[in-house]
Write a protein that binds this DNA or RNA. Structure first.
Lengths: 196, 196, 196, 196
DNA sequence: TATGAATGAGTCTTCATTCAT
DNA sequence: GATGAATGAAGACTCATTCAT
């Protein structure tokens, strides 16, 4: 593997292991098995390195989301949302530390904010994509017509977001079966509603 | 106001303004208009100060949650959940930086984890309280009997959590009306379900 | 006991327990069960307090030394030196931390140096008193006439000084019997000489 | 000279000039003409730096002591002890501040104690080496057979130890001739004994 | 006299970044 | 491109001393 990728992987690993505030260039270099100086041959700064780490994490999630418009009218709505929920859980699990860092390092956030707005790539973007998909399904009559589809997206992705957060807080790894159950239950509730 | 409270307020303000990693004892002291040394007359360490800030933030939220068991069978379920959602939005808005900090400073998280577990006070605790409330309503027949009530709690609080997160990310303050609409829409969706 | 004495005792205890660099006014006040402010009602400064602690420690030792001139020609020389050696071991044991502090805090040493010279009370003073005593015994024919009596004093007190130092280094308390043996052996060697 | 050595020398100089408690990383860096940060590129901590300073000081002394076993039966006993006494005076003179520091900073002492015991390198070790040498001479009949040789070592090295201590206290440098006389007189007394 | 909160100068240590080799 | 020693700014925390009560 090329040094640049070794550095990216090392950074991701160190961040997830040590937390952001204990992620030092020294430690990243140690894990990547190179010198601290080398970091600066491949990335402009520590922040630049972080940005590339985040972009990498975002990939898989976006891939699923970008498939969503094509799903409308195919399979069941539940199956389509299940796919989204799983991708979201994966992504939130992977990126939660970096995400949290936005509020810990506000300058970083401010700079990213601009950039995100320009590219229309913020974290709320995924909720919009799901909203648009649900709107399309609504037009096809596969979703309750009275619903604010944005709210459904917020409920589903919010539940996944907070779930990932809680798991991280507890420091636990969730078995595959437990996650499956979580998604199933949440979708069940979301599909049929709270009222009797 | 007593110095101790001035320090607590200053810390909260600085954290929200500068972010955690830029929150220095020097700046807190400057805002509290006292010396850095004085911080240590009232709190054992910076971390200890943070803990007290967090406890303060938790107060209002817990107050609402602890009222919840008494609400069962009274008013409408929607009204009761509305109250919860508003308190949650307030709390998440207020505390999101500190909450995020848990993942930035893993030692802090590790220590809090123990403490939280002992006192059964973790962030997931609020979801449990709502779950129990919904279970009670279920027994009264005011909630769909087929539902996993935990999932409903996760959906509602998750949506609020992520909403607060997105607002913070955008750096925007949400007008009262917008928040009201958000809660209304989310509850609508949650109550009636996604399916036609 | 009066507060002033409580403070003196507390200071001595803390110094011997924690070492000088960990001896804080806060800890002294804690042990003396009074406020930090009270320290300054009875002593001008921390240094002033230390000086009074040292003076207290010096008492017993000086008492023995001042009896020495009167001992000349009485009992045996060995018995008289034994008494000196025991007093020296006691004093060095008690005061070694404070003594060491002179080199750790050179300003303190510089100020004490002046004062000691004025009063002729330096640590070398005890060697002189023993020297004078031995000179008197020499004149009485009870001590080898060819000897430099100062050297004898240096050997005896030096051995005691270093012995106390080694014990402190090892962190051991010496049983009564062991100390007795140490003094006996040292005097034996000193009295009869190294050569066959 | 390499920076590492410049730092070691600077530390030694500052310690001897300012005393330990006034030896700051800032001042060491100033004298070594480098940044404070550089100290930590070469030594793990201030304490680690101190340890290396002490090890350097110990070198010359140990070299002489390790030659001692080979001296038995050669030259005169007096000459051999003279060599030891001079090396001891040099070493004690050089290291007395650091030695004193052990009692000022008890944590430091505690850690060194372990290490010293493991390597059998404590300050009392030199007395043992001299003791063993004298035992060998005793067997050769060059030393009084009735003597406890450990006591002779304690007397000689104790006198040197305290002498160095007194000189440091007085802040005086001893002329070469004076030191020679001191050693001569002490050995004289030690060789022939106190009794007529 | 006794208090103890307030002080502020001073300490060790960390860390992202640079640059000569 | 790779290195790693050097940097220096910044941070959390300590502590003897003061002073209003």
């Amino acid at each position: 593997m090329e040094l640049r990728d070794r550095i990216l992987n090392a950074a991701e690993q160190v961040i997830r292991t040590n937390g952001l505030s204990k992620t030092t260039t020294k430690e990243i270099a140690r894990i990547a098995d190179c010198s601290e100086g080398s970091l600066y041959n491949h990335f402009q700064s520590k922040e630049d390195l972080y940005i590339h780490v985040m972009k990498g994490q975002l990939q898989g999630y976006l891939a699923v989301l970008f498939k969503l418009p094509g799903r409308k009218g195919t399979r069941t709505v539940k199956e389509n949302l299940e796919e989204v929920a799983n991708a979201a859980l994966d992504y939130f699990h992977l990126s939660i530390v970096m995400t949290a860092s936005m509020f810990t390092e506000p300058n970083f956030l401010a700079r990213r904010r601009q950039e995100f707005e320009q590219r229309n790539e913020g974290p709320h973007r995924s909720n919009e994509i799901v909203t648009v998909y649900l709107l399309a399904e609504q037009k096809l009559g596969r979703v309750n017509a009275d619903l604010n589809t944005r709210s459904v997206a917020d409920l589903l992705l919010g539940a996944c977001f907070q779930h990932a957060f809680h798991l991280q807080f507890l420091g636990e790894d969730e078995p595959e079966a437990a996650r499956k159950q979580f998604v199933e239950n949440v979708l069940q509730a979301l599909l049929h509603g709270l009222l009797p």
